[in-house]
Amino acid sequence: MASTDGALSADVAVEALGALDAHTLGMLGDLVAQSGWNQTRDDWALFAAHGTVHAVRDGSGRIVASGAVLPMGPRGAWISMILVDPALRGQGMGRAVFAHCLRQVQSADRVALLDATPAGEKLYARYGFVPLWRLTRWQRAGDASARRAPRSEPGPLDLLAALDAEALGLARPAVLAHLALRADSRVVRHSQGFAVVRAGRVARHVGPLIATHEAAAAVLLADIADSEPGPLFIDVPDDRPLLREQLAAAGFAPQRTFARMALGDAVPQGQTAFIHAIAGPEYG
């Protein structure tokens, strides 16, 4: 994901943030809102706890650009949250933060992965990133007729994490646990898969949705659509005809597209056919 800008300014100073206090979280939250994204304070807390949050400040100390690196498994790392204050775009801040994140990943000898918007894809291609596959964000406004189901307990989270790692090709048990165990999250289970539904800034997010075949994923999606009355986002690989048909019938509409991209040798190879919705462009 990215908010990209123009030519790189040589004097852009990028810092790695430490613990995120309420004031810092507020500034990062402002960037999310200005960019129209869906992340919450819980998401920033996850990046700080298990990865690194990078930032650019203006002369008053206000955070005006951000980026995040989230290591996954022994060889991978996700780059995301490349956000810039809309009033300050075009000054090279987004590119500076991204380059800083990429250097961190490469210095650790990890494969860099990300989910790019169309504008971001052009930038990342210049760095050598190549697209792996494509996906689309679908959104649905609130549905008052949906029955709100009681919150599901995650159950054997280690088994869910194992299936998630098989699908992604990267182990991320701490990330999955953080998403699933939030007070406002649900884990919807099926004998052949599972999905996490969590709160977002403007809509609840469905993902990851992992299942061994698309028909099982469709059962999970139907359960979620029928039990969540509020607005929903879900990011689905484009090569899922059954899910796309079901989403359209359930009142979802395409919002934006992404490209899964990678840079580095030995790109992790998972069972991508098991991925029916990603955890989000910030997590893969």
Score class of each variant (00 low, 15 high):
87 A>K: 12
260 R>P: 02
267 V>F: 04
252 F>W: 11
23 H>F: 06
20 L>D: 04
129 F>T: 04
111 V>N: 07
118 P>G: 10
211 A>K: 07
87 A>I: 03
197 V>Q: 01
149 A>W: 15
153 E>K: 11
128 G>V: 02
141 A>D: 14
266 A>N: 14
82 I>P: 01
243 L>I: 13
201 R>F: 00
90 G>L: 08
147 R>H: 14
279 A>Y: 02
152 S>F: 08
86 P>Q: 14
55 A>Q: 09
86 P>M: 14
232 L>D: 06
133 W>S: 13
245 E>M: 14
176 L>G: 10
104 Q>S: 15
276 H>R: 11
253 A>Y: 10
250 A>D: 11
7 A>T: 13
187 V>D: 03
227 S>D: 10
94 G>A: 10
70 L>I: 12
254 P>V: 12
213 H>V: 03
201 R>P: 01
207 G>L: 03
246 Q>C: 10
165 A>K: 10
280 G>V: 06
124 Y>W: 11
269 Q>K: 15
243 L>H: 09
25 L>Y: 00
141 A>K: 11
264 G>K: 04
240 R>D: 04
104 Q>P: 00
114 L>H: 07
111 V>R: 04
77 A>N: 01
15 E>L: 13
92 G>P: 04
9 S>G: 15
247 L>S: 09
70 L>R: 12
156 P>V: 06
212 T>D: 09
41 R>E: 14
201 R>D: 02
265 D>I: 00
146 A>S: 13
277 A>D: 05
62 R>W: 10
51 G>R: 07
76 G>P: 05
158 D>T: 11
273 A>E: 15
210 I>N: 09
177 A>F: 04
76 G>K: 02
28 L>N: 02
39 Q>Y: 14
209 L>P: 04
144 A>H: 13
33 A>M: 08
66 S>W: 09
142 G>M: 11
135 L>I: 00
4 T>G: 03
254 P>H: 14
8 L>D: 02
179 L>S: 03
132 L>V: 12
68 A>W: 02
157 L>G: 07
273 A>Y: 06
109 D>C: 12
102 L>W: 02
107 S>I: 01
59 G>L: 08
262 A>L: 06
239 D>I: 05
63 I>R: 04
201 R>A: 15
12 V>H: 05
195 A>Y: 02
81 M>D: 02
45 A>I: 03
135 L>A: 13
235 D>K: 03
270 G>C: 11
284 G>C: 10
195 A>N: 04
102 L>Q: 06
256 R>M: 14
82 I>K: 00
185 S>M: 11
73 G>K: 10
257 T>Y: 01
162 A>S: 15
60 S>L: 11
189 R>A: 15
160 L>E: 02
94 G>P: 02
28 L>P: 01
213 H>M: 07
18 G>P: 11
83 L>E: 02
117 T>N: 04
3 S>G: 10
85 D>M: 08
141 A>R: 12
85 D>S: 14
43 D>K: 00
29 G>W: 03
133 W>E: 12
51 G>D: 08
147 R>A: 13
41 R>T: 09
21 D>T: 10
225 A>R: 01
